[in-house]
Design a protein around this nucleic acid. Structure first.
Lengths: 145, 145
DNA sequence: GAATGTATGTTAGAGCTCTAATGCATGCAA
DNA sequence: TTGCATGCATTAGAGCTCTAACATACATTC
């Protein structure tokens, strides 16, 4: 018997929590009519104007082709603009448009509401502990690869 | 200032850990040439032979159309077979083939290895606490919707 | 100057995921 | 019997995600 019951697998509980997070954030982003990955990109773009798509991908924890897909959809909706870099001709600088900033702020208010509700479920001590334990998960799992 | 720093967001850490989990499980499933969702479906199918696709979807935490996609790929590879239910003609009973069972066992050994490594990063007390905290996350987030 | 290395951007292809809508079958109730 | 509710299966369409591969541009080194 080499197998393992689902409830014993930490991964099951991690996945379950992540799924709930995604669903909640998705609902929170709905008024702004953006997806969660789109919101994540917009949020980082507000903080780092002119960033390259590859760097943005690293910040968002996705691969460059994935970010490419997300940015394409954002550009078609006019929420971002991409202009060639003055020196490095191969690099495209990405920036929020005015509408993009408005949409980002709308989505952010929903996302922050979710995060505050989540944080409110824990004491300060529990929150720190949870973050520490999650960090250890990521560390161990990255090493596994 | 209604926004919130990424490091303060529990969701960021949750997502980070989940991403690492997915990457590790993906690597673990690679020798069996199945994806993580495919492995999850195969694992449940081994335990509940003849289950309907909708019920399987609920167990795996995805929607029926999603499970449909996964099962279609598994069927094309000959890892499962689907036969009409004797009474409820609308229902398809899904079962592992012999090859499906072999592949599932290969993938499972890799997945269990990941889970054991993950569990080994914590004391028994920490593990229980982490699971409890993750459960509270899911609860609060589901209520948010 | 030429070769190598590093980083960016893009395309192609496979697969997962969702919502929305539709069709079908079964069972229950008026 | 007719109608309604429930549940299963499927299709359509949009979007995210990855790996693999390729092209381009800049920087460093020989």
């Amino acid at each position: 018997m080499t197998s393992m019951a689902p409830e014993e697998r930490i991964g099951s509980h991690l996945k379950r929590a992540e799924q709930a997070l995604l669903a909640a954030k998705n609902a929170a982003c709905k008024p702004a009519a953006v997806t969660v990955p789109q919101y994540a990109a917009l949020l980082w773009l507000a903080e780092k104007p002119g960033i390259s798509a590859a760097a943005l991908a690293r910040l968002c924890g996705v691969t460059p082709p994935t970010m490419n897909t997300v940015l394409k959809n954002l550009q078609e909706r006019g929420l971002i603009e991409r202009t060639p870099h003055e020196w490095h001709r191969n690099v495209l600088e990405t920036r929020l448009t005015d509408e993009g900033r408005t949409v980002m702020e709308l989505a952010d208010s929903g996302a922050v509401r979710v995060e505050r509700a989540l944080a409110a479920a824990f004491t300060g001590e529990e929150r720190e502990l949870l973050i520490e334990l999650l960090g250890r998960c990521a560390e161990v799992l990255d090493a596994q690869r």
